[in-house]
Design a binder for these strands. Sequence first.
DNA 1: ACCTGAACACCGTTCAAGT
DNA 2: ACCTGAACACCGTTCAAGT
Lengths: 232, 232
Amino acid sequence: MAQQQMNGARRAPLNRDRVLRAAVELADHTGVDSVSMRNLAQELGVVPMALYKHVANKEELFDGMVDIVVGEIDPPVGGTEWKPAIRQRILSARRALLRHPWASRVIESRPRPTLVVLDYLNSVVGMFRAGGFSVDLTHHVMHALGSRVWGFTQDLFPASPLPADPQLQAAMFRELAGRYPHIAEITMSAAHDEGSVVGQGCDDQSEFEFALDLLLDGFDTLHRQGWTSRSN
Amino acid sequence: MAQQQMNGARRAPLNRDRVLRAAVELADHTGVDSVSMRNLAQELGVVPMALYKHVANKEELFDGMVDIVVGEIDPPVGGTEWKPAIRQRILSARRALLRHPWASRVIESRPRPTLVVLDYLNSVVGMFRAGGFSVDLTHHVMHALGSRVWGFTQDLFPASPLPADPQLQAAMFRELAGRYPHIAEITMSAAHDEGSVVGQGCDDQSEFEFALDLLLDGFDTLHRQGWTSRSN
DNA sequence: ACCTGAACACCGTTCAAGT
DNA sequence: ACCTGAACACCGTTCAAGT
């Protein structure tokens, strides 16, 4: 009670923005699973119910957290072709997402896009249109990008840390190679870097850019060919 | 207590498979969020703690549910080129996922792949290798496919049902067009089908195949060119 | 050896009582 | 009018007591 008043006097009064920023910070530091209304309230030195003044419920809290991350994506660069412009924008989105490792999962979990999310998507669509893409092709191309517009893709092999014991490590590799020879093979090919058992040891950033450029080049070809969904 | 015994007499004794199938069925019917250990136990006519005999915890329950869905994916078709073979396999995975709408979200949420998941991925990798792809290119190509190997992609505009009132509907379209002209444009182009405000009205299946074929064609081109990660 | 009720430590959110 | 503690209806999981 005495502490409550001290905090009340020291801190700025609660508002929606402070609530959302505290939630982002909490998720950054301790993981999104520990973002509960109760934990967040404690972090802010208030009673849980005080949060409901500023966000209607937990869903709205998550929406607000997404908006903060999406707000960190750089605006489009001007004076260049559609391809490098879109490439840079998506890589900027990727940097924002990488600063907040929980964000991709939360973005995927939202049942409806927020206004801020729609703003970003609208602007990416506009970049294709400005590059001369037809409405038809732009529509398909946005679907093909999927979550890659956010700069992330689902890791098929999440990074799992290698066991410290090198003998145990070797045993794991042997078991993997025995059961899953094809996975072992592509894993080994990239495993000069250290990192983890599977799928790490490769550079996530360059894998992302490989796939992004493959898609953008494909879009380019279709665009130049005057592709339409009816002609297909 | 009397009912408990009746159930015990009537039903087959609980085992891991029955637990997992009941969980899948419950998720299919009432949504994955309603799959709690308590609800599932009630569905099976047992006390919650009885489940812990057959699954270590809820994480293992989810893993088992994923395994059931992945088990529904058809085996590879033989006697054909890598491209149609992989295409058919992925479209079979898509059909399995569409039968269980919760499955894509659960697959994405798993921190580690199960043995069944590794079996499927290993076999897809093997199909590229059998098609003559280098280890290097196969590795990159699997990253580029990402969650598309499962036959799904993140919907950027989740389907939201249109309001019944046509006047309200028109108002929503007008607001969308005013704020997000580019999104409105690509939405309208596909909105001859009815369905929802944004992004629906287009055929998800053909959008999926568009993106899949774009990627497979891109892979094909790189393969024929003898692409390597060093030559890039 | 197996089963299970009670309990623990959490949730998000409602609601009524207090100021 | 505003604030907030208690309460409600849930969780997953532990544990000890019962058979």
